[in-house]
Computed example of a mutant assay.
Amino acid sequence: MTSVDGLWFLADEAAQRAEQAYHRTTDSYGETYLERTYEKYVSRDRFRTLANRIRHSGTPYGAHTLVHRENGELLLVRHEGVDLWVLPGGGVDGSESLRETAKRELEEEAGIEAAYRGLAMLNRVEISCQGCTTWGVLPIFRAVAETTTTVVADPDEEISAARWFDPGQLPEDTRDREDLIAAARAVA
């Protein structure tokens, strides 16, 4: 790693911001959630992109919502960019909070309004490339749907569908499928 491109400095700033976001989130929502650590090995360009996001908001991938209906079904959206079913969520805009981000993304990607009930998961994402490392938080809020008819209005045009699934029968091509099943069981 060289100091010429300043990547080490960016990684350090990002890690400090992640630490702040982690503590602010745990202070706000207590300790009744699952925690996981994910490791991502990326190119230098992708590392720079993710580290800049973390430096801005503490999170590389924004905030997401694990939302369920009264009958226990979970909402997933089809993300065409990764060709997987995922939780609704995305990046932080401006100065919005992580919970505000999750709520906005849920409305954009699925047209669902929900009552938020704290955190389902608070994940740590460790990111590495050619000797550089940093980390960020990935909060997943839990919520109960107040409306259940889905309407995809994603301005990014990444989401092609939104559907409800029984937590024990999530599609095989669901990102972090086993962790989502465990989180759904923990909040049921």
Score class of each variant (00 low, 15 high):
1 M>C: 05
2 T>P: 03
3 S>Q: 11
5 D>W: 12
6 G>E: 02
10 L>M: 11
10 L>Y: 10
10 L>Q: 10
15 A>R: 07
16 Q>H: 09
17 R>E: 13
21 A>G: 05
22 Y>F: 14
22 Y>G: 02
25 T>F: 04
27 D>H: 12
29 Y>E: 05
29 Y>Q: 09
29 Y>V: 04
30 G>E: 03
31 E>Q: 14
31 E>I: 05
32 T>C: 09
32 T>N: 15
33 Y>V: 04
35 E>W: 01
38 Y>G: 03
40 K>G: 00
43 S>I: 09
44 R>H: 03
46 R>L: 02
47 F>S: 02
47 F>D: 05
48 R>F: 02
51 A>I: 07
52 N>A: 08
52 N>S: 12
53 R>P: 01
59 T>F: 07
61 Y>E: 15
67 V>K: 10
68 H>M: 13
70 E>V: 09
74 L>P: 02
75 L>P: 03
75 L>E: 06
76 L>Q: 05
77 V>G: 06
77 V>P: 04
78 R>P: 03
81 G>A: 12
84 L>V: 04
87 L>H: 05
88 P>R: 03
89 G>H: 00
90 G>F: 03
91 G>M: 09
96 E>S: 04
100 E>Q: 15
100 E>H: 09
101 T>Y: 04
102 A>T: 03
104 R>H: 04
110 A>Y: 11
114 A>V: 08
114 A>N: 11
114 A>Q: 04
114 A>T: 10
115 A>T: 13
117 R>Y: 12
125 V>G: 00
126 E>T: 13
127 I>T: 06
129 C>G: 07
131 G>L: 06
132 C>G: 11
134 T>N: 04
134 T>M: 11
135 W>R: 07
136 G>A: 02
140 I>V: 15
141 F>H: 03
143 A>H: 01
144 V>T: 06
144 V>P: 00
147 T>I: 13
147 T>N: 13
151 V>Y: 01
152 V>Y: 00
153 A>W: 01
154 D>P: 09
156 D>S: 13
160 S>H: 02
161 A>L: 05
162 A>R: 00
165 F>Y: 12
166 D>E: 15
167 P>M: 04
168 G>W: 02
169 Q>H: 14
171 P>I: 14
172 E>N: 04
173 D>N: 15
173 D>R: 15
173 D>E: 14
174 T>A: 12
175 R>Q: 08
176 D>C: 05
176 D>T: 07
178 E>L: 13
181 I>V: 15
182 A>Q: 14
182 A>P: 09
184 A>L: 00
187 V>M: 07
